[in-house]
Each structure stands twice: as C-alpha cells, then as structure tokens.
C-alpha cells in the first residue's frame, strides 16, 4: 500500500546551506497494519509524511501510495489517502456537518452516498450533537473529532496520522487512539508518527526510529527490544540515538520528560 524507496528531501537553510530533512529513507506499510514513525521533534517525520500526502515534493527517491507515485500522480494519491495532523485545522465559520460535507464533495463522493456516509461517521464518532456547531465554538476534542471525520469521509485505503494527539488531554487522546486502532481492524493501511513511546507500544505493529532525517532501525516493538537488548522501546530509542549522536546525552532527561 505504501512503499518508500530512498526518499530524500533537501531544504535550503540560510546558515547551513542545503540540509536533508529526510535522507534516503525506505520502508513499506501493508494494509491492516499500523506503521509507527518514532522520533524527536525535528527528526523529519512531518516532512516525510507531507511528501507522502503530496504537499511537498521529494528531492529524490520514490514513494508509492496506494499504487500511485506521489510525484507523478499527486491527485490520485490524494484521492486515496486520509491525512490528519496538528497542522490540518478546521474552518471557524463552518459547522461540523458542512465541513465534512465540503471535503466529501471535494473527494467527489456522490451526493446521496455522501449523506449516508456522514450519518454513519457522525454516529460512530458520536458527534451528532455537534452537527450544527460552528468550528469557532468547538472544544479541542470536538475539533479533533471533526478532523477525524474529515479524514475518513471518503473511506480511503491509506491513512496518515502526524502526531494526532499532540495538545490533546488524556481522554480525547485515548479516544483518538481507539479510533485509529478500529481503522486498522477495518483493514486500513496506516502510518502514524509520534514522539510518545506509550502510543507506539500500544498501537503500532511495526515501528521505524527516525532521527535527523535517517531511519536508525525498523521492526516490531518486540524485535527491536530483543535485538538491542533493552528493557523497553524507550531505552532502544535512546541507545540508537546515542549511537549516532553521542552529544545527545543531555537531551535524555528532556525526552523522558516528554514521554
């Protein structure tokens, strides 16, 4: 469903010149699987996922999403994915229903099928009471529900979540994680980026640890723990980062705090 081969994205930085935010990254995600991208802030997770959602264009390498090359058929890719991140806001002056309807129409869903689909999603996500509430008046949790509804309105085979729980309280975050797990069970191909170890342990079937644009290792949580001989994924993570970047020691306490 998702196949990424040697994907590289360079940005030009005023101070440092060209910088690879994502550096020759390769991985694969199958249907019915949640693939985790675990890394600290600035590791290149968002850049990588933006390339997969065709918002950014790769400098080199290839990425196939739902069978389409992101560089050559961006429209086809976008029609087959649902993307949700902290940056994908919802409109203030639109109600929940209008917002989901609008995106449903942009995805080209037939009008009567769209209404059924909206009813269905609003039912499962329990958001019938916010149907006619303007985005402006919604709480963060409500907004997140609308975002999820918007992401899955066209029932895409591939779903991309970029730190979907950042800034949410524990209750809402838990609800989001449950929804993602349900989507996996429905056979979706899911890629999920986060810097929170617990989420990886609970949710991800396989995980890639990414740091400064490089994937340091990939595997299931158990495989990684065993391979690196560490008690849990968190220690694996720090060991891997220290191995490439010994100066990162000081950051350890900070990372622990976040996780």
């Amino acid at each position: 469903m998702i196949r990424v081969q040697d994907l590289t994205k360079e940005f030009t930085d005023l101070k440092r010149g060209p910088v690879a935010a994502v550096n020759r990254v390769s991985f694969e995600v199958k249907p019915g699987e949640i693939f985790g991208l675990l890394g600290p802030n600035g590791a290149g997770k968002t850049t990588c996922l933006r390339i997969l959602s065709t918002v950014l264009k790769p400098t080199s390498g290839q990425a196939l999403v739902a069978g389409y090359d992101v560089a050559r058929f961006p429209e086809a890719v976008r029609a087959n994915i649902g993307f949700m991140s902290g940056n994908t806001g919802i409109y203030d002056r639109m109600t929940a229903c209008e917002m989901v309807e609008y995106y449903g129409r942009l995805y080209g869903i037939e009008e009567n099928r769209l209404q059924d689909r909206i009813d269905e999603i609003f039912e499962t996500l329990q958001m019938n009471e916010i149907r006619d509430v303007l985005g402006l008046k919604m709480s963060t949790g409500m907004k997140q529900k609308v975002s999820i509804a918007r992401t899955i309105v066209h029932d895409p085979p591939v779903l991309i979540f970029d730190e979907p729980t950042s800034g949410l309280d524990v209750l809402v975050a838990r609800a989001v994680l449950e929804t993602v797990a349900q989507l996996r069970d429905a056979g979706k191909c899911i890629i999920y980026s986060t810097h929170i170890m617990r989420e990886v342990e609970k949710l991800c079937d396989r995980v890639a640890i990414i740091h400064k644009g490089d994937i340091l290792d990939t595997g299931t949580v158990e495989e990684l723990v065993e391979k690196h001989d560490q008690p849990d994924i968190e220690e694996v993570f720090f060991k891997l980062i220290r191995s490439v970047d010994p100066t990162e020691n000081t950051a350890q306490s900070g990372m622990k705090f976040i996780s």
């Binding site: 994915i81 940056n87 806001g89």
Partner: peptide, 14 residues
C-alpha cells in the same frame, strides 16, 4: 495562520 490551508492542500483539489 489558522492551519486550514494544509487541510485544503491534501484534498484532491489541484
């Protein structure tokens, strides 16, 4: 600023 631009960019609209 409101973050809705990226939402729109990932829709199938060119």
């Amino acid at each position: 600023e409101r973050g809705t631009m990226e939402t729109l960019l990932i829709s199938p609209a060119m």
